[in-house]
């Protein structure tokens, strides 16, 4: 037992072993706490509201798919999913494009005022997006952008930029100077170097910041709540919230709608988990 615990931290290079029972017991407990409520919501969607009222903590008896079918066919689910996709993809593209250009300059050019510019961007980490929401709404209103995708995309890009630059800069700095020299000797300018060498090499970091921006945008609630008054532009979080307050008595329907709304983010994250943890390693080096 003791030998096992002493050796296990250094076991990285050996083939993966079965841990001791205590490790599994604890890991199972953690998993149970994390996913029990989620499983409850998904399974609850397979019950009927009378079933839920009669016994809130029971299992479906019988299982009904009616709620899920109803959400997928009758409600505004698909339009909201489409809106969410447009907004999230737009935000992700914007953040990555603007962020990589700025981070490239901050990482690979030496010029007077570079550190000032970097500090200027990192200052944004101190500006909570929530605090700026009221003046932001007023400004978007004056720019006639309310009730458009831009009203969500542009501020989200702006507020994601600081973190993106903080993550990307060390990554871009770490790419060896020799590559840049070699490219210069071959007649490639700095912009060509960025496009042909930097971007392909820094794909892991780009994917990390992209995923972070995408998930943040996909889940965003406060900004869309204020600037997307038009129901046809509502994103999924707004849709879920509206559905649950509109059909308060339709518990089973709410559970089904909620389950379907959380699926995309869950699937997306499942595929990208390694990238996120890997990409954050550079950022938390301190």
């Amino acid at each position: 037992m003791t030998a096992n615990t002493v050796l296990s931290p250094s076991a990285k290079r050996r083939p993966v072993s079965w841990g001791n029972p205590l490790t599994y017991a604890l890991a199972l407990a953690v998993a149970a706490v994390s996913i029990t409520p989620v499983v409850y919501v998904i399974i609850g969607g397979f019950r009927t509201t009378p079933q839920i009222v009669a016994n809130p903590a029971g299992l479906p008896d019988p299982w009904v798919v009616d709620n899920y079918v109803r959400v997928l066919t009758q409600s505004d689910f698909w339009r909201q999913a489409f809106n969410s996709a447009v907004v999230s993809l737009g935000t992700t593209l914007g953040v990555v494009a603007l962020g990589v250009c700025a981070a490239f300059v901050l990482a690979r050019y030496t010029f007077r005022g570079r550190e000032v510019l970097y500090t200027f961007f990192t200052l944004g980490l101190l500006f909570p997006a929530g605090a700026a929401i009221l003046p932001l709404y007023l400004m978007l209103r004056d720019l006639n952008l309310i009730n458009s995708y831009y009203a969500v995309i542009l501020p989200q890009v702006a507020f994601s930029l600081p973190l993106t630059i903080v993550i990307l800069r060390p990554f871009l700095s770490a790419i060896p100077r020799e590559l840049e020299d070699a490219a210069a000797i071959d007649g490639t300018g700095r912009l060509g170097f960025l496009w042909r060498i930097m971007l392909p090499l820094s794909r892991p970091a780009l994917v990390t910041v992209g995923i972070l921006a995408f998930v943040t945008s996909w889940n965003a609630f406060l900004l869309p709540l204020l600037v997307l008054g038009d129901a046809s532009l509502h994103t999924l979080p707004l849709g879920v919230q509206n559905f649950s307050s509109q059909y308060t008595s339709d518990t089973a329907g709410i559970l089904a709608f909620t389950s379907l709304a959380m699926l995309p983010a869950l699937l997306f994250f499942t595929f990208a988990e390694k990238q996120i943890v890997g990409g954050l390693q550079g950022a938390v080096k301190g």
Binding site: P9, S17, G19, A27, V30, T258, E273
Partner: peptide
């Protein structure tokens, strides 16, 4: 715990992250 080396670690990590990935509204 999840940094220890044991079989199934990846799955347990994913499960532990689930609440964080869900939308606040959800």
């Amino acid at each position: 715990l999840l940094n220890r080396n044991f079989r199934g670690r990846t799955v347990f990590r994913l499960l532990a992250f689930v609440p964080y990935v869900l939308a606040e509204v959800t």
